[in-house]
Design a protein around this nucleic acid. Structure first.
Lengths: 204, 204
DNA sequence: GACTTTATACCAACCGGTTGGTATGTGCTG
DNA sequence: CAGCACATACCAACCGGTTGGTATAAAGTC
């Protein structure tokens, strides 16, 4: 069996996801990372040329991982694209349940806020992950719009981006309050907005 | 004239706002802070017992500063509370115009994302600032709801928090894209949501 | 198929610079 | 001359990154 990527590298990336989501990127030292992964520093620099390179790899790792989670989620099986969209929103809310903040928040949102100005490489890598996911959501929205609200003035793209903004912002409120419930509340507002948007369009 | 707070302390706090918004809290060193403020390290530790204490002071400084900005904004003069609310949203969008990311994003959102798990003091200080502002918005929403949508099922509190989530999330997308326009787009969706919410209520 | 070469995968020790923080000094004010 | 408001000098710990090295295995050579 060949997994393609060596075990040590995967362990380092896994440790990076956990530690960066908990303490942020700058506060996570390479030594700490190696300790968590049970790996020496030499191994780290064998696989990553720098801490910045690890960050970029981590965003790719994250994007693949989460991409699979969403691709395998139930809501994709719904027939009506509007049901898929609402299903996606509900799925985002469901992910919050029973999870600690570090377990349910977004690595990319966390990292880009720290590094957007100091590392264009990391900023760009985060952007790719975020907007790729937004694009997946946009496909659903576009189909839903074509079917239920073809004349609506809003674009599928801007609504897709808005869903991501709400979710990212919900995480920040949750971190401030140290309680994921407030994030679920905000996602519920997002759900209602989308319902109103499509409900309104049908009445036109 | 006695400003109450010494000039050196104010200069340090001002430098802290600028540097933390640009590079984050962890990436901002005390030396760098002193250099930017034109002050020695001795002066820093004369006014702040630790870097953490500076962070807490900075959140209070920020909350007072932004509190004044919103208190003096035009939208407060509108008669109808719903106009005030829409005016507030537009004001938030307007702030983005012509400003760099570091100049228009929220210190508290930036800081709480970095420190929510590692410093409960900073987390709490950020929470106070964020939820105080949300409370100001809630007062407007409560008045608007009483007048235009008294029977609506959503609470003023959760809608106020949602406005803050959207704005915070919009900043993250803007940082990822390195472009404030995407934030303005999301705030426009927030505006439409509120309009739909109140429009819908009137039809009941 | 024995022998050499080269590349890979790691490791422990170490490096210069920076970090948050301190200890001590100094000038100014009442 | 007491005390506050700073300035200077310094420190141990930690930072990201480099070093010189070893063990293993694949690849080329005769």
């Amino acid at each position: 069996m060949d997994t393609g990527t060596p075990l040590v590298k995967t362990k380092l990336l896994g440790a990076a996801l956990a530690l960066v989501r908990q303490n942020g990127f700058n506060a996570t030292s390479i030594d700490e990372l190696c300790r968590a992964a049970g790996v020496t520093k030499g191994a780290f620099f064998h696989y990553f040329s720098s801490k910045e390179a690890l960050a970029v790899s981590a965003t790719q790792f994250w994007t693949e991982m989460t991409g699979q989670v969403f691709a395998q989620a139930e809501y994709n099986l719904f027939e009506d694209p509007l049901d898929q969209l609402i299903g996606y929103i509900d799925f985002r809310a469901q992910i919050l349940q029973g999870r600690s903040l570090a377990e349910c928040t977004c690595l990319l949102g966390t990292m880009v806020q720290e590094k957007y100005d100091s590392s264009s490489l990391i900023r760009e890598a985060c952007a790719i992950g975020i907007f790729k996911h937004a694009d997946d959501v946009e496909k659903i929205i576009r189909a839903a719009k074509a079917k239920h609200a073809p004349l609506a003035s809003w674009t599928s793209e801007s609504l897709a981006l808005h869903t991501q903004a709400v979710i990212q912002g919900a995480f920040i409120l949750a971190k401030a309050k140290n309680d994921v419930a407030v994030a679920a509340d905000s996602i519920r507002h997002l759900r209602r907005y989308i319902e109103l948007l499509f409900h309104h369009a049908r009445e036109d």
